[in-house]
Nucleic acid binder design. Sequence first.
DNA 1: ACCTCATATCGAAAATATTTGATATGTTAT
DNA 2: ATAACATATCAAATATTTTCGATATGAGGT
Lengths: 103, 103
Amino acid sequence: METMHKEHSQVFKALCDEKRLRILELLRDGEKCACKLLENLDIGQSSLSYHMKILVESGIVESRQEGKWTHYKISKRGSKNAIELLNKLTLTDNNEHDNCCKQ
Amino acid sequence: METMHKEHSQVFKALCDEKRLRILELLRDGEKCACKLLENLDIGQSSLSYHMKILVESGIVESRQEGKWTHYKISKRGSKNAIELLNKLTLTDNNEHDNCCKQ
DNA sequence: ACCTCATATCGAAAATATTTGATATGTTAT
DNA sequence: ATAACATATCAAATATTTTCGATATGAGGT
């Protein structure tokens, strides 16, 4: 039950950092390898690696090895999941009862 | 441009904490005042206040004063915005060109 | 086998976020 | 006016995230 919230928060943790949003923006126009991302970002190599791990673990980005390069792209499945999750989390019940603290 | 990413990240920052997801869950079945939330959460009063501020500032939750009580509920407008934002951030261009680092 | 390149991982430092306890603010009741 | 209550704010302590530099891993090329 509490594990569920932790799991869900992971998805949004991927999106709550400016750098990672910038990375997503770069990935929006197609798959890119780490070195191309690095060129367009103002961060170090190990830092990029750290962020990519978080994005991949959230499911929103997927990675693919090709020789010595790692290619990253936005995962359609992962994004769809994230959107559905957000939808579920903010959907209010129809029979809302607000019998709370009135004067 | 960079401000935009900061602004966007604020929305997801609201969702990347387990406690705040638990709060959203409580709000899903209707508007609640802070004291009712406090009863159902394992955190202190000032801590709740801190989290509610983050949720309200993200637009996902809206607050309403009634006498000495503050009532909170999930904002339909705010949730819709968040979902649209997430959709936009993860939507890939159709003309993706992956001419990146091949052997 | 050895070297180079691309990326991942590690531990320590730095930056940010969260909790806590104390106090302030604003509302209602007496 | 005073007291009681609900919530907000503050500063300090604590916890978590992020960065940085160094090193490890793994693939290719010579």
